[in-house]
């Protein structure tokens, strides 16, 4: 259920993102979802890839500062109100979202978002109780 997200520290200068993507490409690693959080000086690149362990290793070998974080993928109806519904469930339980980003591809007509919250377990529990599907780890990597 947990999905391994790879986070990479990037300086705000041209070519850094390209360089990460090139390293992944050369190692035959496919990016499933991505988001960048940035400030004026630096950014944090967050990636979901098909082979997180390998991605972690190769980026580290190339001198990047990399970390792994557990996040969860949530399936939401690809229709107006889909995301709102999921967020309201979490809000009611006072589960605070640290960040969230959308998946590149769809899963059987539904949209996918990646969620990072402090307490992943409670989040998954409350979502599934409310009929929201949380795809398995393998399912995500295979997409």
């Amino acid at each position: 259920m947990w999905v391994k997200q790879i986070s990479i520290f990037l300086e705000n200068k041209s070519g850094r993102l390209a360089s990460v993507c090139r390293i992944l490409a050369d190692n035959d690693i496919n990016i499933r979802a991505l988001s960048i959080a940035d400030t004026s000086d630096f950014g944090i690149l967050r990636l979901i890839v098909n082979q997180p362990e390998k991605a972690y290793q190769v980026l580290k070998e190339q001198g990047f500062t990399v970390s792994e974080t557990d996040v969860v993928a949530v399936e939401i109806p690809d229709a107006p109100g889909g995301l709102a519904q999921v967020l309201e469930i979490l809000a009611q339980k006072e589960i605070n979202i640290e960040y969230l980003y959308a998946f590149v591809s769809k899963s059987a007509g539904n949209a996918l978002v990646m969620l990072k919250v402090e307490d992943l377990e409670s989040a998954v529990e409350v979502l599934t109780q409310n009929g929201i599907r949380v795809p398995s780890t393998g399912e995500i990597y295979r997409i």
Binding site: Q5, S7, F9, A37, D38, F42, I44, T65, S67, E98
Partner: peptide, 10 residues
């Protein structure tokens, strides 16, 4: 920024 201090949050 070393791995020791790197955090996934801005």
């Amino acid at each position: 920024v070393s791995e020791k201090v790197f955090a996934d949050e801005v």
